[in-house]
Design a binder for these strands. Structure first.
Length: 812
RNA sequence: GCGGAUAUGGCGGAACUGGCAGACGCGCAGGACUUAGAAUCCUGUGGGAGACCGUGCAGGUUCAAAUCCUGUUAUCCGCACCA
């Protein structure tokens, strides 16, 4: 069979019949299957795209055949740096290259033969989409969830833009892998931290991979503790430290402020100022390099100032050190060298006091630092309490004097969304000399991204240099004003696309709430694991924020999530041009067709694991497809020739058939495609055995039924192929609108079953017993077995364990 | 350091709540059909001559462990001075 030919034929037919469009009338059965949309950087699909979209489409087709009204849209995450960098290199405008890439990619995606509903396509770089991205920005602003502030931010000198925390990987830029430096800049942030607790709690109820949940949990980084107020000796200033170990506050021998802390320059004494300023300077300069050294030595400088420990009135020296992060907690910590490893190292290095205030429960452990839980000592009234009791009591007592409080801290930072780049959605904000920060009114949206812009990066936003863009009138007072020159992080665009898909052409609203509340949440979301702490977290945040504004009535966007694994090169390494191990789907699709390529991806790997590419595997699928075709054609021949006599065991064939149906159901739900196809292969082998030369009329009817079942079962995996054979068999209706087989439990009941007989847990013999036999009967049959009897000889039988339909274990 | 995962034949990978380890496929071997090969079909295929031994390693629980428990090693992924 010419696979390429039939693929073309059926793709055209499906498109003509609008086979893949969602029918709202069937809302009660809706099933929203979503694959993460792709970035149109390369013109062609790579194996990763195929591996995400092919098997997931088979899952969607399976759901459709099971009677669900499947919605499976596709689109492009089209803003972003690669197009812009490509433009800088080649001079081709990002819009032009992106539009042409999207076109090529869409064509290749269509050739996959997936059930994408292209009538709902989204392209995030188009004004009809980013208008609503901007609208959401304004909503967030109006609800206090978008704000602008000056802060030390991550700056990538190579990409010439700021980055979100999530985009900094071990001190380097996630895109170009260059070192990221800190800069003080005024930028826009989204207040994702307002939702830290709900984002954390909500994870429990999600059907997501546990690894992904754990990653988000760690990223949010909840920590329970307290804040303790330290007043400075000068009587004016004060600061709070965040600690999870308030129980050790009697062991404080110094406190440390982050070098960036604003109090530092005020508190330092004249004598220490030169050293302090030098240290601050060095910290800022050295940070990016030292960040990479894993075990770097702790350094710090005494400010010359002192503060008072609120629990005992003790004078405590104030130090600064870069091991204290300004961005976490309050930017100040108390130093308890006896009970913290870092403080211990620091105190030893600088000769600071070390006071033990916790001893081991059994009194034995004398080693310092002692970081475990224990019993409080040297802490006056609190002596003898457990650490946990002391934490509560000390904070409660401090709270009474307004010197402390219980406090929950999160590692999660607000999301920095400004980017000093061209190829993104402009930030819809206007700065007016008299009205201040003014959001662009909805009627003026979208703020269009101008085409003619000098986008070569020089550290300033390209849009700032575009006069006709940057200059505007204030929407409030009409005075001359300026637009925000930055664009939005592309993750903003992808944080709500799943809400737009079902209502992709709505020109009045971002989406119709009533419709979206019915269509969402997404029932099955499939995509790469690399998005755990970015896209998947941001999308949850957007959903919750829009819910609280009244636009949505659900809490989570993605009920059930699956990550596909990674297909490696044949050499077991990640595919890369430099390694020369890149597998091009095109070559295989050309040779075998898209059905076989997709099916091999599903059969040759465990879906969530992935693994190295292997050429031999694809041939085996091609062979399997040939076998299916042969069966179907020969059964058709029998039918036409009306051959007689029969000699086959219907019962066994029916067993194979219903066994396949039952197991494929379970496997599909689990995304266990490789085993589903294995069951299909077994079924085909069973059918082959009944492909006898001589057949009776009665038998042919069964064979025909069985081959139809086979085609229905194989349809989700090889859609074009199955559709073609289905029509060859004389069916007028598409196989995807035909009734999917259900299994009959009765067909799976065997008259006789084989049991293993063990003696002392070692298999010694096999016996056949009636499937209705009682334990007692089974035991008797087992003991009568020749082999078993001879082994038992005359030894006393201590115990006999009968596990129905599995085995018999005789203990002698 | 913290968190998560993985480890099973020559290879990719199966094994539901503990119950015959190695489904299915690749590869390999033998056979059938061919003048011959390719293709196709059939049979066999964890190791060992054998009693037996076998799921990274060492223990444990159990009539029974790839699966549960304790410890340990290796690899991969994420976070990392988070107070």
């Amino acid at each position: 069979m010419d696979m390429k030919l039939i693929e073309k034929k059926w793709q055209a037919k499906w498109e003509k019949d609008k086979s893949h469009s969602f029918d709202k009338k069937n809302m009660a059965k809706k099933y929203y299957t979503l694959e993460m949309f792709s970035y149109p950087s390369a013109a062609k699909l790579h194996v990763g795209h195929w591996y995400n979209y092919g098997p997931t489409d088979s899952f969607a087709r399976y759901k459709k055949m099971k009677g669900y009204e499947v919605f499976q849209p596709m689109g492009f995450d089209a803003f972003g740096l690669p197009a812009e960098n490509f433009a800088i290199k080649t001079g081709i405008h990002p819009l032009d290259s992106t539009v042409s890439n999207m076109e090529t990619m869409e064509n290749t995606l269509r050739e996959m033969g997936a059930m994408f509903d292209w009538s709902h396509e989204i392209k995030t770089c188009m004004p009809d989409y980013y208008k609503w991205t901007q609208w959401i920005f304004v909503q967030l602003y109006n609800h206090g969830l978008a704000y602008r502030k000056e802060a030390p931010v991550n700056w990538c000198p190579s990409c010439q833009t700021v980055l979100a925390n999530e985009q900094v990987i071990q001190g380097t830029c996630e895109r170009c892998h260059n070192l990221v430096v800190q800069k003080d800049l005024t930028q826009w942030f989204f207040k994702i931290t307002d939702y830290a607790e709900e984002l954390l709690q909500g994870l429990d109820n999600l059907d997501w991979p546990s690894k992904t949940k754990a990653m988000q949990k760690n990223w949010i980084g909840k920590s329970l503790g307290g804040e303790i107020l330290f007043k400075c000796e000068n009587g004016e200033d004060e600061f709070r430290v965040f600690t999870t170990r308030a129980d050790t506050v009697f062991g404080v021998s110094y406190v440390v402020l982050a070098p960036e802390h604003p109090l530092v320059k005020k508190l330092m004494t004249k004598k220490q100022s030169a050293e302090v300023l030098k240290y601050i300077d060095n910290t800022l300069k050295a940070k990016e390099i030292e960040r990479l050294s894993l075990d770097r030595e702790k350094t710090g400088v005494f400010t010359g100032a002192y503060c008072i420990n609120p629990v005992n009135g003790k004078k405590v020296p104030i130090w600064i050190s870069d091991y204290v992060l300004y961005s976490y907690g309050t930017g100040c910590v108390m130093g308890v060298p006896a009970h913290d490893e870092r403080d211990f190292v620091f105190a030893n290095k600088y000769g600071l006091e070390i006071t033990r205030v916790v001893k081991g429960v059994n009194g034995a452990n004398d080693d310092l630092p002692f970081v475990e839980e224990g019993i409080i000592v040297n802490s006056v009234d609190y002596d003898g309490l457990t650490c946990e009791e002391a934490r509560k009591k000390i904070l409660t007592d401090l709270a009474k004097q307004n010197s402390g409080s219980f406090k929950v801290n999160y590692r999660l930072r607000d999301w920095l969304v400004s980017r000093q780049r061209y190829w993104g959605a402009p930030i819809p904000i206007i700065y007016c000399p008299s009205c201040g920060t003014v959001p662009v009114p909805e009627k003026d949206l979208p703020v269009k991204l101008p085409y003619n812009v000098e986008f070569k990066p020089d550290g300033k936003s390209p849009l700032a240099k575009c006069e006709e863009f940057i200059n505007c009138k204030c929407p409030k007072c009409g005075a001359d004003a300026k637009r925000d020159p930055d664009t939005l992080d592309t993750f903003v665009c992808s944080s709500w696309y799943f809400l737009r898909y079902p209502d992709a052409h709505n020109s009045k609203q971002a989406f119709d709430s009533e419709l979206i509340n019915q269509m969402l949440p997404v029932d099955k979301y499939v995509g790469g694991a690399e998005h755990a702490c970015m896209h998947l977290l941001y999308a949850r945040f957007f959903t919750k924020a829009l819910r609280d504004m009244g636009y949505l009535n659900f809490d989570e966007p993605f009920k059930s999530l699956v990550h596909q694994g990674v297909i490696l090169g044949p050499d077991g390494n990640r595919m890369s041009k430099s390694r020369g191990n890149v597998i091009s789907p095109d070559d295989y699709v050309k040779q075998y067709g898209s059905d076989i390529f997709r099916m091999y991806l599903m059969f040759g790997f465990s879906y969530t694991e992935g693994g190295p590419w292997n050429d031999g595997g694809i041939k085996s699928i091609s062979k399997f497809i040939d076998r299916v075709e042969k069966i179907v054609t020969s059964v058709n021949d029998y039918k036409n020739n009306k051959v007689t006599t029969f000699e086959t065991d219907e019962k066994e064939l029916n067993y194979a058939r219903h066994y396949a149906i039952k197991n494929i159901d379970r496997d599909m739900e689990n995304f266990s495609f490789n085993t589903a196809i294995a069951r299909l292969m077994e079924y085909v082998t069973a059918l082959y055995k009944y492909d006898a030369k001589e057949q009776s009329v009665k038998n042919i009817a069964l064979l025909k039924e069985c081959t139809e079942t086979l085609l229905l079962l194989i349809a989700p995996f090889a859609p074009h192929f199955a559709e073609e054979l289905w029509s060859i068999c004389g069916n007028k209706k598409s196989i995807f609108n035909s009734e999917y087989p259900t299994f009959e439990e009765s067909a799976l009941v065997k008259d006789e079953i084989e049991l293993a007989v063990q003696i002392n847990s070692k298999v010694k013999a096999k016996i056949m017993v009636s499937s209705t036999a009682t334990d007692k009967e089974i035991e008797e049959i087992a003991l009568k077995n020749d082999v078993i009897a001879s082994i038992i000889d005359n030894k006393p039988v201590k115990k006999v364990i009968v596990i129905k339909s599995r085995l018999v274990n005789i203990i002698v």
